[in-house]
Amino acid sequence: MKKNLPLTIAFIMGWLGILLDYIPHKVSEVLMTSITKGLMVTIAIVAFLGLYSLLNMHWIKIKRKNAGWGYSLLVFAGFFFMLIFGLYNQGDLFWKAQVEQGMVEWIYTYIFTPCQETMFSILAFFIASAAYRTFRAKSMEAGILLVAAVLVMFGVVPISGKIWSGFPEIAQWLLEYPNMAVKRAIFFGIALGVVSMSLRIIFGIERSYMGGEG
């Protein structure tokens, strides 16, 4: 029962998903709408499981005073501050839509946004340093990649057009032909992999999703 029930559900839902997608009938549309709605509710419920898992992990870290446990305290502080202000909703409480320019919006605009933007902007510096150290023409293939990368990097910024009008055209050609051919091949590979993995799950050959039995 423990094994057969999930296998049966996967088999029925898998086939249902395939058939509903290919049958252009009103009944199939209605059924698909209900199923997707149900799955969206499931995803929302799963978020609570994720939340429990996250908080539990940080709680254990604090309890055992593991390295960096102070950061885990910040996770709790951030979570509960947002939760309290979100539920309080400037006195309107949580069953009403979030109040404009309330505390949640303030925290988002003046704490969360600058932190996230700063984190991402630092990347430019690390990419430059990494490119200098690692982007080397150590072989013929690496050399071709390097020349293509430099041409695209230069061709996509307007200053290249000011130097020679051919640079943007070369960059565009590289993106539209060699790049697209490779990307398409990768997508086909991924798609075939997804189809075969889905069929393995539907027919019960692939069972690792039930707990790593393989």
Binding site: A128, F135, R136, A149, M153, V157, I159, S160
Partner: peptide
């Protein structure tokens, strides 16, 4: 544009 130029300079210089 200028940052890209500097980055390209460093890549070429590194090579």
């Amino acid at each position: 544009s200028v940052a890209h130029l500097v980055l390209i300079f460093f890549i070429i210089f590194g090579n």
